[in-house]
Design a binder for these strands. Sequence first.
RNA 1: CGGGGCGUAGCGCAGCCCGGUAGCGCACCUGCUUUGGGAGCAGGAUGUCGCAGGUUCGAAUCCUGCCGCCCCGACCA
Length: 494
Amino acid sequence: MAEHQGITTREDDYSAWYLDVIRHADLLDDSPVRGCKVLKPHGYGIWERIQRELDDRFKATGHVNAYFPLFIPMSFLSKEAQHVEGFAKECALVTHHRLRSIEVDGVTSVEPDPDSKLEEPLVVRPTSETMIWHMYGRWINSYRDLPILINQWANVVRWEMKTRPFLRTAEFLWQEGHTAHATETEAVDEALQMLDVYAEFARNVLAVPVIKGRKSVRERFAGAVETYTIEAMMQNGWALQSGTSHFLGQNFAKAFDVTYQDADGGQTHVWATSWGVSTRLIGAVIMTHSDDEGLVLPPAVAPIQVVIIPVYKAKDREVVMEAVNALNKSLRGKFRVKIDDRDNMRPGAKYFEWEQKGVPLRLEIGPRDVAKGQAFAKKRTGGGKFGVAFEGAVDQVQDVLDGIQAELLERAELFQTTHIHDISSREQFVAAVKDEVGFFRVAWGGDDDDEVAVKNETKATLRCYPMVQDSVEGLTCPLTGKPAREWALFARAY
RNA sequence: CGGGGCGUAGCGCAGCCCGGUAGCGCACCUGCUUUGGGAGCAGGAUGUCGCAGGUUCGAAUCCUGCCGCCCCGACCA
C-alpha cells in the first residue's frame, strides 16, 4: 500500500508539493542566512551532472573556462546606465576588511573595526559583466585578439526579497559566458548559437522541452540590446525562464572603453555577448517530471541511475550478495550505481526512499532472482516489475534508461504542446489565464505600457516572441486592438 | 516591502483560550525476532518551547519588540 507520507499532492497545493518533493528527496537544507540554501549531496549531484554536460558543449563550441573575482569595485556597477538600474537594488556590499572583538556587559562579540573601512566598498557580484569588461579592456588591442570566448562557473549574489528553493535564492550557482567579437554579426551569431546549445541540452539531457524566443524590451537583461530565452512550461502551466543569452551590442565596450584596431588601423568598439544558466535548472527538472510520489529524474542528470537492493533472509545472505556484487561489477563504470545494503531497513522501506529520491531504475535481487539468473526491475516512471537477466545486463539497463529518458521527454512535450492556448479576444484571454493551465498565444501589437497593463490585470507576462513565427499579416491584436506585429506567448511565470 | 498564517525533540504535531516546571506519532540508540512494498516486541536517549525584554511567587501559555519560514501581492533569473 503506497501511502503518501508527507508529500502534498499537486492538485491540493502545487507550491507545497514542490517543497515536499525537495525535502523528501533530500536535495537542500535551509541555512542560517535568509534566502541562502545548502545544496546537499543529492541536490549538488544533479548540478554536477548539469555542469559536466554543459561544459562539454561549451568546449565543443570553442569556449574556455576562466575565473574572475567575487568582489567588484562599486564604481564599476555605475558605468553602464541600464545595468545600474537593473542590479543596484539587490547588491550585497563589503564595507570593511576586519572585525574586532568587543565586550558588552561581560559578553564578548564582534563588530566591524572602524579603522578597516574600505575606501571604496566592494560589491559581491550579481553578475560579472563589469569585472570582465574591465579585464577585456586590458586584453584586447587588435582584431587579432578577437574573438574572446570565455565561460566561468561561479556563484553570484542577488539580494532578492522573496526566495524559493532553486528557483530564486539570494546566492546561487551558475555559469556565465562572456564573449568579445570584432563584428556585430559574429556576436549575434554567438548569442544565437548558445541559445541553441541551451535548448538542445535542456531537451536531450534534462528532458525539458523549451521554447526559444526573444524577450520583450521590458523583460530584457539590463544592458542588453537583445535577450534570447528558453522558456519551459511547468506542470501548473507557469513559465520558467530556464536560460538566457544576450547580445550586448557595444554597450559594455563603450562603458569600459574597449576598442580594437582593425586591419586598416581604425579603432572600433568591441561587440559582446553573455549567456547563463543557473541552479534554477534543477527546479525546472523537478517541476517538469516529478509526481505525487516524489522526485523523478531523467537518467542523464540522475546522480544515481540504478539502485540495487538485495533482498534476503539470513540463510540466503551470502548467495544474494554474491549476485549483487557480480551485477554491480558489470554495471559499474557504465552507469551510476548504488547498492543499498543497509541491514537496518527492510526492502519495502528502501523502495519508497529511492523512489522519493527520483532514482530512475531499481533492481531487486533476492534468492528467487538469483536462481533465475536475473534481477527484478522497476522503473521510477511506472509500469510493472520485470526481469533483467544478469547475462547481458549492461545492454538491457542501457535500453531501459534510454527508454525512461525518451518517455519523460515525450510526456513533457505532449504536455507543453497541448497546453498552448490560442487567444482570440481580451475576454477570452482574461478567462483563460484564470481558468486554464499553460501558455497563451497572442498576435501581439501592444507596447511597453500595454504589457504592464496586461500584467496588472491578469498577472500573466509576455514570456517571449518565439523564434519560430507564423505570419501576422492582416491580424489585429486581441488584447489591444492594435495591428499585430508578432506572435507572443504570455503566461504566469516564476 | 504590504496582507495573511506559522515557529514546542531530527521531522510532523498536541498543549496556549483558562499561567503551576512539557507530551504524542515517526525517526534515533540497545537487544532479540525479522527482511519479495513503509517490521514487531522490550528497554532507552533527545528540548535554552524562534530570540530579547516585560507582567507574575511562577510564563510554552499573557504583553511588547525583533528574527525566521510558508502562502498571496509588488520586485526580480
